[in-house]
Design a protein around this nucleic acid. Sequence first.
DNA 1: GTCGGCAATTTTGTTGACAATATCGTTGAC
DNA 2: GTCAACGATATTGTCAACAAAATTGCCGAC
Lengths: 238, 238
Amino acid sequence: MALSPPSPTSFSSQPRPDPRNPPGPRANRADLFNVVRERIARHDYRPGAKLLENDLAREFKVSRAQVREAFGALESRGLILRVPNRGAEVARLDISQMFEIYDVREVLEGLCTRLAVQNTKPAFWQPLVTLFGKPMERSVKNGDFEDYIEKLQLLQRRTSEAANNRVLTDMLASIHDKTRELMRRIIILPGRANDGLQQHRAVLSAMRKGDALLAEKLKRENIRSSREFLVRYQKFIL
Amino acid sequence: MALSPPSPTSFSSQPRPDPRNPPGPRANRADLFNVVRERIARHDYRPGAKLLENDLAREFKVSRAQVREAFGALESRGLILRVPNRGAEVARLDISQMFEIYDVREVLEGLCTRLAVQNTKPAFWQPLVTLFGKPMERSVKNGDFEDYIEKLQLLQRRTSEAANNRVLTDMLASIHDKTRELMRRIIILPGRANDGLQQHRAVLSAMRKGDALLAEKLKRENIRSSREFLVRYQKFIL
DNA sequence: GTCGGCAATTTTGTTGACAATATCGTTGAC
DNA sequence: GTCAACGATATTGTCAACAAAATTGCCGAC
């Protein structure tokens, strides 16, 4: 009987490895998958861009067979679109899909926040409360969006970890892959960064008080607010 | 510039093709993926069972390369587990994962129900209200679980279609793949089928009235109730 | 100049062979 | 009888070559 193996290199998105450009030595399956995914998420590969098997095989010093295998995973994740005999291209996400994702994201992020609060002591969130205080306010005032985004991702990571739900984390990761670039464009919208900061502070305040249900409610409002900006400015973003 | 292609054979789980045993002629990529997925979902392949590349290649009359490609997709969906040089086996889902899934499922099914109501006229649900009336009561009384499950799936399908959210439908499909067998075991638990029927009736009643928020609330209660049965009887189910 | 068709090139699809690794069974020492 | 070492077998990992299809560039008719 096969015992549950130590699972050295899970393909899952869970432990995202360093997604820098491929090192000298050849990459393995998970590397290839994660690097291409990261590139799609950060729009290094633009939507609609063709992905050539040969190019990737050469770059990663692997055979085309491995590239194709990674394509299978990327396709099932909805990151690329494959047409027989015509190859693979980065999935284009139209605006209606974006709104679909927002509906799902709202309930999942809300759930994630609630679980995170339920699984931790309130004091756990104090460092993040502090981080989202004065220093973050300066970043917003100065228009330092990189810093803002970085700290936002930290909050998301901490929350996801605390939620301690692998299925949920995976789904959120999948959603974030598709929305990363859009988020960057929304954050620079006039007033969005400040609105967002206030909302995140409210969420964190509820988390700091251990009020899971309130935190969930506020988190969902935060997502809906972001969505409203997309509605209002969609002409400029796309 | 590449135009959006007609997308003849999307890999996505959306339009689930007939997943019967492979026909005489060779299968294509999507067939292989969907058939294996279906077999895992219905426990034709039991958790922990080894999947041999050669066997599948022979059965479907395709090359091993294609099997490996499908494995890439199955792995990224969490349906199989691969260990380098040791092959692929059907993912084992332990009880804690099941509870993780329940948390996610609760909010997603709730969302799905709400969207479905918002997108339809109340009268749309009348046939299902009728279906879940007397005839279904007989099925429960007679212990005809196959019929019960069949009608439940019809309700889920209609709801998912009406929700009209591809991202959501895909995630729910992915969850259902992992929980199908468990649902079957829960439904036969003493009192569960009847409890479930009453709950579904309540949900449908709210849908029939066009009360989206109430329907969502009741649907979530329905999932939580199912979860309670798992808590209470988990020793018997696993 | 535009259009259609033809050939050259590129790209994907498929296969089979070979290497690397793990698994299983056997043998033999103790 | 137990255990370790070893060899045989089975399975996965890798690759390169070939076939099939699509794309591109070119040429000539009009």
